[in-house]
Amino acid sequence: MLKMPRQPSLALFWIAIIGNLVIIQLGYNVFHQIRDIPFESNLFRVFAAIFADILSNHLLFEPLLNGLILFSIIMLCRQLIQQVKLYKKWKTYIDSKSNPEMTKRFIKKFNKENLRIEVILDSSIIAMTAGLIKPRVILSSGLIERFNDQEMEAILFHEMYHSKFRHPLQLLILTMIAESLAFLPIMKSLVHHYKIWMELLADRFAIYHMGSEIQLAQVLLAVLKNNQVKSQGYGVHFVNESVNYRLKQLIDPQTPIRIPFFKQKTLLLSVIVLVMMTLIFIYGSV
């Protein structure tokens, strides 16, 4: 099995450390603030007691922290509701397009009985891995018509990697952490970094199993070339997106890929926020 390189492991490590520290500290802060609020007979009195407690028993800076906590909770709830709604929409779309006959034939042809695959009737070129608990690879009939058997194998290995490591679920959790801690821009940068590596590693998995990068390269080139001619008539500088790192890797699979974790401005801003929060935690309580 291919070993996870150092960079994405580091990104995950820092997301876990910073995310957990901040969330636990914010959570503890909430606990600290509400523990001295008396239980009242109705909600209005509870809220009144909370306001009175904030104004009289805690320094001015603590409401700022409460603002951040509230922001995080709202963002988390928003993400959850959005994901549930989108899941329903997605399921309706896929179920309406699903073709069990084509799916059966495809699985048999490519001998991928262990992989959850679904072929949908769609002339667009679609290959994606979706689903949180039991991820499945969604392929369109347009894709199957467009590419030959070897190229399809390469595509399947790429998507298999995403499915095997439950990347949809990983990405959901990481995105929710990054969104709820949006006041720490470094979190979004680290998640973006990890997401790029997800694609690179999926490509490496495909290259390893195909024994060559040619098939995957042909697929990417076919999909990108047409889009490129249409959308860009002038030189474009290198954009920090997965597509460009994947191209680099396919051009020279032996050269190590270096992806920046974050910009200096992002790091500086996040450090400032973290320092301010820490000072409030240390000096802010009575």
């Binding site: 899941y87 290959a127 999909v223 889009n227 490129q228 474009v236 997965s242 460009n244």
Partner: peptide, 16 residues
Amino acid sequence: GSLMVSHLVDNMDKAD
């Protein structure tokens, strides 16, 4: 959203 990991190629218009 994040229910989908990626299409075969993300951000096609950002390809160098």
